[in-house]
Simulated scan of single mutants.
Amino acid sequence: MTSDSPSIYLPGSLQGHFLISMPHMDDPNFAQTVIYICEHNESGAMGIVVNRPIEMDLGQLLQHLEFSYNSDLNDLIYAGGPVQNDRGFILHRHTANQWESCYDVTDELTLTTSLDILQAISEHSGPEQFLVALGYAGWGPGQLEQELSDNVWLSCPANLDIMFRTPAEERLQAAAATMGINLDLLTSQSGHA
């Protein structure tokens, strides 16, 4: 999109929203995913897939990082996206603590990328609600807007109960249900009138 063309696809930023993949999504990185959008502006967008757990759990990650940990830390770790999938991203509710590298996504949620938060989690002094992901999803300028106009994604305001309390395998349908949509009833074929 050029700067003189009106923004017909995106009236505002989708930061703090969910992207829900449409049933016809065939990209294996994003099929059947819910993505939490952490940043969205004229430079592009960045988000974390919040419903695709990987084989490693938090206790294993903390052990790999040589942090002391309690064996009850078996929280899931998520495949956050195909970009920098060797790097950790922690989405969490705001806390009084300030971590070395954090970014306030909304008034309620922060994205932290520094190891100090994992150390605090291992010592049970971190945030109560958090989601750990490896990697992220990224879009260049105008790319997400084009995908939205091509009916690749649905978007809705994020629901933190879905992200933090709903089992991973139920998050896709739960996010769609906040808009009154049953994804099982949508066709897997996309079309335009």
Rank of each mutant, 00 (worst) to 15 (best):
G126R: 03
A133R: 00
G140V: 06
L134N: 01
Q143G: 02
V152N: 12
G138M: 07
N151R: 09
G140A: 13
L91V: 13
L154Y: 06
I90T: 15
Y136C: 14
G126C: 09
A158S: 11
W99Q: 08
I121Y: 04
A120T: 06
I90C: 13
L115P: 02
S101H: 11
Q143T: 00
G140S: 13
V83S: 09
S122E: 05
S125A: 08
Y136P: 02
L109Y: 13
L160N: 05
G126D: 12
Q84P: 02
Q146L: 10
G135M: 04
E128K: 15
Q119H: 08
A120Y: 07
P157T: 08
L131M: 13
D104M: 07
F89E: 13
E123C: 09
E108M: 03
S149H: 14
G138W: 07
L148T: 02
L144K: 00
S155T: 00
F130Q: 05
I90F: 09
S125Q: 14
N151V: 05
S114C: 12
A158E: 00
N159L: 01
N151H: 12
L91H: 15
N97K: 13
C102F: 06
Q143H: 04
L144P: 07
Y103F: 15
S114E: 11
D86H: 03
L131C: 10
S155Q: 00
W99T: 09
A120G: 05
V105P: 13
H94A: 04
W139K: 06
T95I: 10
H124W: 03
N151P: 01
E108F: 01
G140R: 00
P157R: 10
I121G: 03
V105I: 15
V105M: 12
G142L: 03
H92N: 04
H124G: 01
G88C: 05
E123W: 03
V132N: 05
D107T: 05
V105E: 14
G88D: 00
C156D: 00
G138E: 12
F89P: 06
L148G: 01
L91S: 13
T106E: 11
A137C: 14
I90D: 10
N151C: 08
H94R: 11
L111Y: 10
T95V: 13
V83T: 06
D86R: 00
T112L: 03
L109A: 14
